[in-house]
Amino acid sequence: MSRHWQDLHSPASRASLYLRAARKRAISGDRLPDDGLRCFIRVQPGNLSAYRKLCHFPDDGRLPGTYPHVMAFTLQLQLMTAPGFPFPLLGLVHLYNRIEVLRPLGGIEGLRFSVHAHNLQPHAKGGTFDLVTEAEDGIGLLWRETSRMLVRGLKLEGEAAAPAEDEPAPLQEATRWYADSDIGRRYAKVCGDYNPIHLSAASARLFGFPTAIAHGMWSKAMALAALRGHLPHSGYAFEVDFRKPVRLPSEVVLSASEAGPAGALRLDGHGDILHMSGQWGPL
């Protein structure tokens, strides 16, 4: 596919994008546009400091591996709320996330991001697509993210692949943390993701959840911060499947393999609820 790139001086305001998202509540097509967005985005030191504190990353001179996701979030929002994008933002479900850190994320003042969507596939509950975000510095590609999103109720031709519901193997506990009732609002303030399902029980109930749930990318960031001693500074991939949502408030337990070039992790709640499973390995 020949992709049509639009180069931006800066992303649109989040307020205008959320207003656009609120106005679109229905699926308007079954094909992804071949458009992509590109933009240079600077690191905001105050925001970076707040993110490190929120997700328990040390200030070691490098960007946390998940932080480019935060930098690019508004650009992703702009792509998925564009007039030609066929799926409503509200109601999308984040199923899977993979980040690749190709080179060390140190000494960075800004990055040139590109965002596009592709790989539309049938799913037992609708359809999925991949949102791909890449970041470059003056040398070349530095970081890549793939987020798989579920569009519930989408009807596509073809046979849906069976979802991977296998139970990951037991692992040794690495740490545990408490997800308090306002973590969704605190994460939103730092990262800009104001999806109503994360903000309060009242707003979450509008989308079928009995209580607010934690952001999946907060859980992933907490896991990456806790396991940073298991991973090299670069040349690795860190991927997770989001299973059952973390209802707020609740305690969760992170278990993982021993430190090494490759390993596995899982995030569990009380009552044998598996919230997240994943793995890391060299590129």
Rank of each mutant, 00 (worst) to 15 (best):
A225Y: 06
C39D: 07
D182S: 08
L131E: 01
K244G: 00
D180V: 05
R112P: 02
A188D: 00
S28Y: 12
E157H: 09
L120P: 08
N119F: 06
R152E: 00
E251D: 06
H215N: 03
R243L: 05
G126W: 05
A174N: 03
T133A: 12
L17S: 04
R42W: 07
P33K: 00
M1Q: 12
P282L: 15
L156Q: 03
L105F: 13
A124T: 10
F73M: 00
G65T: 03
V101F: 06
H123F: 09
Y187K: 10
S2W: 11
V70G: 01
E134S: 01
G107K: 14
D137Q: 14
M1K: 09
G138V: 06
H233L: 12
A22H: 14
A237I: 11
P168M: 14
T146P: 01
A169Q: 15
S203T: 13
A221F: 02
L90Q: 07
S219P: 02
A202Y: 14
L248V: 03
A221I: 00
A201K: 11
A26C: 09
V246W: 04
A160K: 08
A174H: 11
L156I: 08
V190T: 11
R20V: 00
T74K: 12
L154Q: 12
G127F: 02
D137K: 07
G281D: 02
L8E: 07
Q172H: 15
L111M: 10
R62H: 12
W218I: 04
T175V: 04
L79K: 00
H9Y: 13
V190Y: 10
E109K: 15
H230K: 13
E159P: 02
G65A: 08
G271K: 14
R152F: 05
E159T: 13
E251R: 15
P33Y: 07
H215L: 04
E251A: 15
L48W: 06
F129A: 00
G192K: 14
P232N: 12
Y67H: 07
R42S: 09
A12S: 12
P33S: 15
S234R: 04
G281K: 07
H123I: 02
P11C: 08
A15K: 13
L141C: 09
H230Y: 07
A50V: 02
I197T: 11
V190I: 08
A15I: 05
L63H: 02
P45C: 12
F207S: 10
L54Y: 11
D166C: 10
R144L: 11
L95K: 06
T66M: 12
F113Q: 01
S147D: 03
K155E: 00
A26I: 14
A72R: 03
G127V: 00
V151D: 00
L32G: 09
M80R: 05
P163S: 10
Y51I: 04
G138Y: 03
H198L: 04
D59G: 11
Q78S: 14
I213H: 03
V93R: 01
S234T: 01
R148F: 10
H275Q: 08
D7I: 13
F238M: 08
G158K: 15
P33I: 10
E258Y: 12
A169Y: 12
A162P: 05
V43Q: 06
A26R: 15
R20F: 02
G106A: 15
P261I: 04
A225P: 07
L17N: 01
Y67N: 00
P83D: 14
V246Y: 05
E165R: 06
